[in-house]
Write a protein that binds this DNA or RNA. Structure first.
Ligand code: MN
Ligand code: MN
Ligand code: ZN
Ligand code: ZN
Lengths: 147, 147
DNA sequence: TTCTTTTTGCAACTAAGTTGCAAATAATAT
DNA sequence: ATATTATTTGCAACTTAGTTGCAAAAAGAA
């Protein structure tokens, strides 16, 4: 897991959960706090391992992540390496502030492209869009692996 | 699997394999032919199941796909549902003709966005690109699932 | 507190893909 | 056409990420 951005108190975590009508259980509080302290998306495995060190079962962590995701409190990223990653929604449930993600195919590092927007351009005016876009993932070679 | 686009003869398949210095085995020929006849990316599972009906072992099919991918004869798509998909490179090994892909999160359908280009735009001039992009994946709700 | 509903831990299971190794096959040399 | 050598295959066992059923525990409401 990565370095703490800042610590979220138990009370703050509880407030976030209550805001989405979720029960405040120890596991969910721990998940919210862990995700909050992360500076990049966290894999389910990392989180399950970290929190099993505090006595939580991995199935509980997986279930918590799914529940928080369904409540739009966390974003679930499927980046193509068959390992799920999660990040706390910037706004705790509103579903705003989506951004594309970049994954390096060499080192596996994942970056939030918060300062970028993506544009899909039809090459001719007769092709129609495939649908409404909800997630954009870009893969390639990161600057560290290229240089 | 999807309907045949056109049939590729054994000799044509062999020529493609030889062009990349790969041995012409029955399994690899069958994989090339199957991928050629597909109109959309094919999952490893579909292909392994189809070809196991002809006596090939699934491990052989998985290995063939990996080898053909490493030779740039086929493109491997990781679309986020932990199931790999493959398509024949349009130009049999040159690595050109890349295009973004769209996956519907509702019905799972995958579309090649051959007629689209993608543009990553920095929101300010001081943010730098994350690296060199090699694959773009867009997920969302397809028109059929939206209407 | 008591009651009711939701959540948890456990262990067993699933799905997709990988691996070691002896036997079979492809390409090459004779 | 046959022998030689390197590569590929089939098999079965394994791995990894995640899921599930169910009884016990915990949360929130009364
Ligand atoms: Mn992000
Ligand atoms: Mn395609
Ligand atoms: Zn990298
Ligand atoms: Zn759809």
């Amino acid at each position: 897991m990565n370095a703490a951005a800042q610590t979220l108190s138990v009370e703050e975590a509880k407030a976030i959960l209550k805001g989405s009508d979720l029960r405040c259980t120890a596991a969910r509080i721990a998940v919210v706090q862990s995700l909050h302290s992360a500076t990049a998306p966290v894999t389910s495995i990392e989180l399950a391992e970290l929190l099993s060190g505090y006595g939580f079962d991995k199935s509980t962590i997986y279930r918590s992540l799914t529940e928080l995701n369904e409540a739009d409190l966390v974003v679930r990223l499927d980046l193509g390496d068959s390992i799920r990653r999660f990040e706390l929604a910037a706004n705790y449930g509103s579903g705003l502030s989506e951004h594309p993600h970049f994954m390096c195919v060499d080192c596996g590092e994942v970056t939030c492209l918060s300062d970028f927007t993506f544009e899909l351009k039809a090459s001719s005016r007769k092709v129609q869009a495939p649908g409404t876009i909800s997630e954009v993932l870009v893969r390639g070679h990161c600057t560290a692996c290229t240089s």
